[in-house]
Design a binder for these strands. Sequence first.
DNA 1: CTGAAAGCGCTTACAG
DNA 2: CTGAAAGCGCTTACAG
Lengths: 293, 293
Amino acid sequence: MAELGYRPDPAARSLAERRTRTVGVVLDDLANPWYVDLLAGLRSVLHERGLRPLLADGHIEPDAVHAMAGLRVEGLLIVGTPSDDTVTQVRDVAPSVPVVIAGTREPRLPSIDGVANDDEAGARMATRHLLDLGHERIAHIIGVGAVGRIRCATFDATMSAGHGVATTVAGDWTEATGHRVAWQLLDRPDRPTAIFAANDLSAVGVLAAADELGLRVPEDLSVVGYDNTVFSRLRRLSLTTVDAHIDEVGRGAGRLLLEQIEDADGSPKAQVVTRLLEPTLVARGSTGPVGTL
Amino acid sequence: MAELGYRPDPAARSLAERRTRTVGVVLDDLANPWYVDLLAGLRSVLHERGLRPLLADGHIEPDAVHAMAGLRVEGLLIVGTPSDDTVTQVRDVAPSVPVVIAGTREPRLPSIDGVANDDEAGARMATRHLLDLGHERIAHIIGVGAVGRIRCATFDATMSAGHGVATTVAGDWTEATGHRVAWQLLDRPDRPTAIFAANDLSAVGVLAAADELGLRVPEDLSVVGYDNTVFSRLRRLSLTTVDAHIDEVGRGAGRLLLEQIEDADGSPKAQVVTRLLEPTLVARGSTGPVGTL
DNA sequence: CTGAAAGCGCTTACAG
DNA sequence: CTGAAAGCGCTTACAG
């Protein structure tokens, strides 16, 4: 019995204990490096309680939520903006399995608890940073979905309060679109002296457009992103950005999910909780005082 | 019985069938975007056979291999250069569970089947590309481990054959070190006119050093990376690189593992197989003809 | 071909 | 406090 190396068979154990010690994590898109730190934070919290995360990509596996429910996960964490399929399936399973959504604001799932960064605070910091550097004509490249709308609305409000001249243009979080719309914004005489892009990848597209137009960064153009991804840290990009402290978001979401799992047979869920974490501005080389012309 | 939405309990099923339909995937470092395409390829192959991957990060979970063996995975895939801990544990479990190693050459595990890209072919392509552009003084930033050694040896051999002047300097796959050693290479009169870095991230560090030294890319300096990661595709980096077709590596590794799982009770493993896939050169904006001075 | 029984390897409540 | 039995929800070999 006490022989070394014995490990109980987990299938037999799950069956006898009537629990799987597994939590499903449905990601928006594994290719986005944004998630990695969130997963690290989540994993550490789950590990303390003997739970393991089971990962699935909502794009590669369109029925991921149903699949995980079929696997009898004890809880479900949705990370990033979910697809329509994912939203529909979450509504199906939410009555029977605890669900938390992390890293995004999701009006389509109003009854689900969530943890995210405070996008209003972050967008305000980014915009103020540019206003404080003396910029007056500032453009914003909008992201898709609820997060994009919040960042854009806050940009507009902060610009109004700071008596700046705001321009906004639709983007889609990608570098390619950031690059394309930056050309539209910059290739004209009354161009903005600064651009705040709704995420780092869009901002990296702006940097490329600036190069092609012969605009120096930050002398002729300041650029701010959002997320503090690995891209923004590359020396040749050196992008000023907003750090959403995504590892803390992962930890908070993990704790919220653990609470729900442990209260599952107790009181019938007090009320919906959406916890917002305070982001931080990370000033790098892509922003500077407005040019003296 | 035929009610909609019935799914057999997987724990009970595993116990009765005596198989878990799960394959363990141990990654070197989840933060490296390199893996994502490999996982997509692997997942598609496993899915056809009703198997699911279970992911673990060898850095975050140092006993990942033993943990997966404890979970009764039917096979184990090691992705990228394994840590010493991982190598030791693989030696423990290899007699009882099929193991395949993907994306790297691993002399410490000589009895394990593997799939990787042909690093000799790739390094030769990268070096020849620079020689063909007229470069004579070319430096190489070396990577760590067996893969790094193979790429470096091939660089040296190709340079000799092409009558070039080769310099090599130790790196560690990171952008920070790439940046630091690029300064050493470039901040002197007899600087090389081209640098081949063992991976994209090191090459991106070289681009930053070139900027700081006032060297234009590609007019004053050509730069080549390796891996065709998301970094190399960013327009502001536009890095010429070697595409290792990592999704194909993932698919090949998945197929090899499936063969081993299905032959497990049959013939006693014919011989060790290491399959090498042919890489491709992707020419972008970071390389050009040697400057006419 | 159909259907009841045995067994997968554990945990846990219960009898001694 | 210890130890044998029941039961977790399936699959599969076997008896009818």
